[in-house]
Computed example of a mutant assay.
Amino acid sequence: MSLYPIFSIITVFLALAFVLLHLVAALSAILNGKKSLGTGFIIAGAIVSILALLLVMISRTLTIYIWIFGNSMICFGAVMNGKNKKKFNKSHHLIRFVIAMLITILLYVRLFLFQ
């Protein structure tokens, strides 16, 4: 049995979990009455990233560019929220950025090296 299907499932699961976690957190903040521009960026980035994951089977190049754009929006919105709330935790945002980069690298490997 090839490792490609297992690697693909794990990669897409991690990517989807990352996006859905941020989407749920942003929607929860809006439901609690904490509306901000950063929260809007997180929601828009999550929607764009989900669209990228839906395009995995159609186009390789477009998928990776849309994924990077969506993750950039998520990270930018989170940094904006941290700055606006005066609770900017640099290590938290660095960890989020590293996780997003690792998932992006895994997605790139899945899209371009295994096919």
Score class of each variant (00 low, 15 high):
Met1Lys: 13
Ser2Leu: 10
Leu3Arg: 08
Pro5Gly: 13
Pro5Arg: 13
Pro5Leu: 14
Ile6Trp: 07
Phe7Gly: 02
Phe7Tyr: 10
Ile10Cys: 04
Thr11His: 01
Thr11Ser: 08
Val12Trp: 02
Leu16Thr: 10
Ala17Asp: 11
Ala17Pro: 03
Phe18Asp: 06
Phe18Asn: 10
Phe18Ser: 08
Phe18Glu: 09
Leu20Trp: 09
His22Lys: 07
His22Ile: 04
Leu23Gln: 10
Ala26Arg: 01
Ala26Asp: 06
Ser28Met: 14
Ile30Arg: 15
Leu31Asn: 15
Lys34Ala: 15
Leu37Pro: 02
Leu37Lys: 12
Leu37Val: 13
Leu37His: 09
Thr39Tyr: 03
Phe41Met: 12
Phe41Glu: 00
Ile42Lys: 05
Ile43Val: 14
Ile43Ala: 03
Ala44Ile: 09
Gly45Met: 07
Gly45Phe: 04
Gly45Lys: 05
Ala46Met: 05
Ser49Asp: 06
Ala52Phe: 03
Leu53Lys: 02
Leu53His: 04
Leu54Pro: 02
Met57Pro: 02
Met57Lys: 09
Ile58Leu: 10
Ile58Val: 12
Ser59Cys: 06
Thr61Ala: 11
Leu62Cys: 09
Thr63Asp: 03
Thr63Cys: 09
Trp67His: 06
Ile68Lys: 01
Phe69Ile: 15
Gly70Val: 07
Gly70His: 05
Asn71Tyr: 08
Asn71Phe: 10
Ser72Trp: 05
Met73Leu: 14
Met73Asp: 00
Met73Gly: 03
Ile74Lys: 01
Cys75Val: 15
Ala78Thr: 06
Met80Leu: 15
Asn81Trp: 00
Lys85Leu: 15
Lys86Pro: 03
Lys86Asp: 13
Phe88Leu: 14
Phe88Lys: 06
Phe88Ala: 06
Asn89Glu: 12
Ser91Lys: 15
His92Pro: 03
Leu94Glu: 09
Ile95Phe: 11
Arg96Tyr: 12
Ile99Trp: 05
Ala100Asn: 07
Met101His: 01
Leu102His: 01
Leu102Lys: 02
Ile103Val: 10
Ile103Tyr: 01
Ile103Asp: 00
Thr104Glu: 05
Thr104Asp: 04
Thr104Val: 05
Leu106Tyr: 07
Leu107Lys: 00
Tyr108Ala: 11
Arg110Gly: 01
Leu111Tyr: 03
Leu111Met: 07
Leu113Arg: 04
Gln115Gly: 08
Gln115Val: 08
